[in-house]
Design a protein around this nucleic acid. Structure first.
Length: 596
RNA sequence: GGUCUCGUAGCUCAGCUGGAUAGAGCAACUGCCUUCUAAGCAGUAGGUCUUUGGUUCGAAUCCAAACGGGAUCACCA
């Protein structure tokens, strides 16, 4: 809100009046006052000692005295070394709360006119989603919501990797071992069924390799010569040639997988505005290569392969087209970048992709820049760290992955157990109870994965990682449920509250004031999270707000308060906390319950 | 080997463009439910911010080097 800016303005005026130091208000930075001192905002005086010709404490004292006398917002001050701690008048806080109540869009930025595409999820169709994908999906969804709150037009895209050698592996194994199995006949979810054959392929493939090695073949050689891999490669050729039988099987298996993915997406609460399929885009990009050759920013080697030299940008030479004229990964991405831009002329295009592809995206951006593409600068790789298990890195082929569907189911079950233990389901219908378990499970899981800085690699311990107490999603959800109970009670008592209900109130408890201070910060937090593409900032905020509210809740009674204005104020404050807890959690894709 | 990245409490993580005695949660210990939901609140204990230099009024934060993790450097995706 304006409060910080107003105070900066006052300090700017004071610096000029007292020390003849001209400083623009925008250059004055305030920081939150540390817990152990009185005050809300702290101004550091060290940087001004030279210009003022006075010691840091003298400056602080002089500024504080001046502000207390001349600035209506300032209640009091104290100086500790070079730190001027400022207390804001209670009536100012109350006025701010009234303003927030009357401003439904508080925390939502006006339309920016900017278009942002967010590509996330982007699964392979040869196996089901696992824990790593969950981080990706939650991040992509949350960042999209945060960007919307910042006033941008967002298009969520999913680029499905539905072709390639890995798909052929599943298909081949299915041909050998499938016996016509279907999701219906096996009772397996489609993506899990296909994933099963992917694992089977790998197993059989490894056996063949071992066999060849036993016969004296070199290991690397064996990997290339094993009959199964040759068959898979032949199958990919047939697929590319449009072989009817191959394409038909491919369609069949993909249909199963998509049904499975849709179910998972629905279950975890993510969605997309547009799907792209690599089977439709993998030949794109060749025109870009041609364009680059004409512009002479790419070059062709004798064998016909096309390369780009990126040594100017600190990168290497990079292959863009194979000698046989077929595309590689980067060729495709050059094509899809153009396709995306034509579909949705973006100012920014985010790729939510794990950090193992950092180099790839540097190359992509650099290549498009060389081609002079207007959309090159908007490309941003939202790189996130891997999720490790206590046993180390997850490897899908080795079966050391945490399956997304299983994990969610386990979480729901844990939520049920916890809730039942606490005896909190009285008055719930079975459907409501099930709904609650799901809400809590997803809250716990999403919060756990989103509270960590996306860039950082993180550890997930299935045994102990997901808690329902402390710094968790359910803690924040619980706070919302608590407040809901208060608001229900207020309604039962016939108490209605609006911005005029506490017009004469002039004093606040410290715990109340701290809650308002956090509410004031909300728009700034949303903005920062948007600028940094960091849902973790929202997660931290929601926790801080819930924590501060719980302290207030514990210390101060609402319905035992005899002063009607103070009581109304506390109900209003509670309602605002509920509102911003809900909004901030929704930005993370997390629902909050009315009761729990 | 080149490039990039990370190293903060026993564990998992915060610490914004440099600011006060480095913060949470979990785990451990102590209090608080005849009063609005104890999935809560308050408190105790726990640290050479990997190390060494440098920049300055001031460094967990910026710079350099070392050590230790990780990623990447495919006519794979």
């Amino acid at each position: 809100m304006q409060l910080q800016h107003t105070i900066s303005q006052r300090i700017s005026e004071a610096l000029l009046a007292l020390f003849q130091i001209p400083v623009d208000a925008s250059e004055i930075s305030l920081q939150p006052t540390r817990k152990e001192f009185a005050g809300t905002y702290t101004f550091v005086t060290f940087p001004y000692t030279k210009k003022a010709g006075k010691g840091p404490e003298q400056i602080g004292e002089a500024l504080g005295t001046y502000l207390k006398e001349n600035a209506a917002e300032i209640k009091d001050f104290n100086v500790v070394k070079g730190f001027l701690n400022l207390e804001v008048q209670d009536k100012v806080w109350l006025q701010i709360l009234r303003q927030i109540m009357q401003e439904p869009g508080f925390g939502k930025a006006a339309a920016s006119g900017k278009n942002v595409m967010v590509e996330y999820s982007s699964p392979n169709t040869n196996k089901p989603l696992h824990l790593g994908h969950l981080r990706n999906n939650f991040l992509g969804y949350a960042v999209s919501e945060i960007l919307k709150a910042n006033g941008h037009e967002v298009l969520k895209a999913n680029l499905v990797n539905d072709r390639g050698i890995h798909i052929c592996k599943s298909m081949l194994a299915y041909q050998y071992f499938g016996n016509g199995e279907t999701p219906e006949s096996s009772g397996l979810k489609g993506d899990h069924l296909v994933g099963k054959y992917y694992v089977l392929f790998d197993k059989a493939y490894k056996e063949q390799i071992d066999e060849l090695v036993a016969q004296g073949t070199d290991k690397e050689e064996a990997k290339k010569k094993a009959p199964l891999i040759l068959e898979a490669q032949a199958m990919l050729q047939k697929w590319e040639q449009g072989d009817e039988e191959t394409v038909s099987l491919w369609k069949q298996m993909n249909t199963w997988v998509y049904a499975g993915f849709d179910e998972t997406y629905r279950n975890i609460g993510v969605d997309f505005d547009k799907y792209y399929y690599e089977s439709e885009t993998y030949t794109l990009g060749k025109e870009r290569v041609e364009e680059g050759l004409q512009k002479e920013v790419f070059f062709k080697k004798e064998d016909g392969s096309v390369w780009v030299d990126l040594t100017d940008d600190g990168l290497d030479q990079k292959l863009l087209l194979r000698s046989d004229g077929t595309s590689v990964y980067i060729t495709q991405d050059m094509g899809t970048a153009e396709l995306k831009y034509n579909d949705f002329p973006y100012d920014q295009s985010l790729y939510v992709v794990a950090d193992e592809q950092n180099y790839h995206f540097q190359v992509l951006k650099s290549v498009l820049r060389k081609l002079g593409k207007p959309y090159a600068e908007g490309i941003y790789h939202l790189s996130y760290g891997m999720v490790d298990l206590p046993s180390g890195k997850m490897k899908s082929r080795e079966g050391t992955v945490v399956d997304a569907d299983e994990l969610v189911a386990e979480m729901v079950d844990t939520a049920r157990q916890q809730t039942e233990e606490l005896g909190k389901i009285e008055g719930f219908t079975p459907e409501e109870a099930q709904q609650l378990y799901h809400t809590l499970a997803m809250g716990a899981l999403k919060y756990f994965l989103l509270k960590v800085d996306p860039k950082k690699r993180m550890l997930f311990n299935p045994q102990e990682s997901i808690d329902f107490r402390g710094h968790t999603g359910p803690f924040i959800q619980y706070t919302h449920a608590r407040i809901s109970a208060i608001l229900r009670k207020a309604a039962e008592l016939g108490i209605t509250v609006d911005a005029t209900s506490f017009a004469d109130l002039t004093e606040l408890h410290e715990a109340e004031q701290e809650v308002i201070t956090l509410l004031v910060n909300y728009p700034g937090v949303v903005q920062e999270a948007g600028n940094l593409y960091a849902p973790s900032i929202i997660a931290q905020y929601a926790y801080d707000l819930a924590k501060a509210y719980n302290r207030f809740y514990q210390e101060i009674s609402i319905f035992n308060e005899t002063d009607a204005q103070a009581r109304s104020f506390r109900i209003a404050l509670s309602a605002m906390v509920a509102r911003f807890v809900r909004e901030s959690m929704n930005l993370l894709g997390i629902e909050v319950p009315e009761r729990m």
